[in-house]
Amino acid sequence: MARQPEVFTRSLEPEEAQRLVKITRSAKDGVRLRRSGIVLASMQGRSAGEIAAMFAATEGYVREVIHAFNDSRFAALSPKWSGGRPRKFGPAAREQICRIAACKPTELGLPLTTWSLTKLVEYLAEHARLVVSAETVRQILRTAGVSWQATKTWKASEDPDFVAKKTRILDLYDHPPADGRVICVDEFGPLNLQPRPGRGWFPVGCPARLRATYTRTSGVRQMFAALDLATGQMFYRVP
């Protein structure tokens, strides 16, 4: 096999040579330091084989570094990290994991009320043929903006004309009559003053206790109030 022609670093300006020497003395990144040393050794006239023996590298790697430096100059000395291994699961698999996690287990025929990461991993492996760890599932869900949250309750009206009535009320808010007032009536209460428990250091099983309510020595009273949205003035009466 024919011997490959020697390759050397291009001619450097004095400023470039000084910069290269400075990098070999101060670089903290191992890859950058090694590449700088290879270029410097080539600048001193050493062959690719000699440089490979100096840095315990292959001759092909030395030639690659020298060619890269000749083409890209000092930018070739910085390592181009790819950010780790490529993702094992693509967008389709990630979307499927998020979609299954958002479903209720009962909708999929499972006797569960909520997903745990372990149960979700087992279901993915058995039904979706996705062998994935619990930590990977957690990271995929977090990246997609899916988090573990408590279920919140809500109420809906059973009145079939609810939407029409709501629309009429909201229209009154937005377009009140010029020669009249819009009066809204609602009931709130009774409002009780509840004690708020604090925290402290107590023996295990013997915390400080407070009554859940209080004794109303003076009875209770009612207040009727109205708020004028146009002026911000409140009218109230305590009977």
Results as ranks from 00 to 15, higher is better:
Gly200Glu: 03
Pro203His: 06
Arg209Met: 11
Leu193Cys: 02
Arg209Tyr: 07
Arg211Glu: 05
Ile183Trp: 13
Pro190Glu: 01
Gly200Met: 02
Ala178Val: 13
Gly180Met: 09
Cys206Ile: 07
Trp201His: 07
Val185His: 02
Glu187Trp: 10
Tyr214His: 11
Pro190Ile: 07
Asn192His: 11
Val204His: 11
Cys206Val: 10
Gly189Arg: 03
Arg199Pro: 00
Arg199Gln: 05
Asp179Thr: 13
Thr217His: 11
Asn192Trp: 13
Ala208Leu: 04
Pro197Arg: 12
Arg199Trp: 13
Pro190Lys: 04
Val182Ala: 04
Arg209Ile: 14
Gly189Thr: 03
Asp179Asn: 12
Gln194Gly: 02
Pro177His: 10
Gly189Trp: 03
Leu193Lys: 14
Thr215Phe: 14
Ala212Cys: 01
Phe202Trp: 09
Glu187Met: 04
Ala212Gln: 05
Pro190Gly: 01
Gln194Pro: 00
Gly180Arg: 10
Val182Asn: 04
Leu210Gly: 00
Val185Ile: 15
Gln194Ser: 11
Val204Ser: 06
Ile183Arg: 06
Pro195Val: 07
Leu193Pro: 00
Asp186Glu: 08
Phe202Cys: 04
Leu210His: 00
Val182Lys: 08
Leu193Ile: 12
Val182Arg: 07
Cys184Leu: 15
Gly219Trp: 09
Ala212Thr: 06
Leu191Ala: 07
Gln194Asp: 03
Ala212Phe: 04
Ala178Asp: 13
Asn192Gly: 06
Cys184Trp: 14
Val185Trp: 12
Ala212Leu: 06
Val182Pro: 00
Ala178Glu: 13
Pro195Asn: 04
Gln194Glu: 09
Pro177Asn: 09
Leu191Arg: 08
Ser218Gly: 11
Gly219Leu: 02
Val204Lys: 12
Leu210Arg: 01
Phe202His: 07
Ile183Glu: 05
Tyr214Arg: 09
Val204Met: 11
Cys206Ala: 13
Phe202Leu: 10
Cys206Thr: 10
Ala208Val: 09
Pro203Glu: 06
Val182Thr: 10
Arg196Met: 10
Glu187His: 07
Arg196Val: 15
Arg196Trp: 10
Asp186Lys: 06
Gly198Phe: 02
Ala178Gln: 14
Leu193Arg: 12
Trp201Asn: 01
Asn192Arg: 12
Ala208Tyr: 03
Pro190Cys: 02
Asp179Phe: 12
Val185Cys: 04
Phe188Cys: 10
Thr217Leu: 12
Cys184Asn: 11
Thr215Cys: 08
Leu191Thr: 15
Val220Thr: 12
Val185Ala: 09
Cys184Tyr: 15
Gly205Asn: 03
Leu193Met: 04
Val220Ser: 06
Thr217Asp: 05
Pro195Ala: 11
Asp186Asn: 06
Pro177Ser: 10
Pro207Trp: 06
Thr215Tyr: 11
Asp179Ser: 12
Phe202Gln: 05
Phe188Asp: 02
Cys206Trp: 14
Ala212Lys: 05
Thr213His: 05
Arg196Pro: 00
Arg196Ser: 10
Pro207Tyr: 09
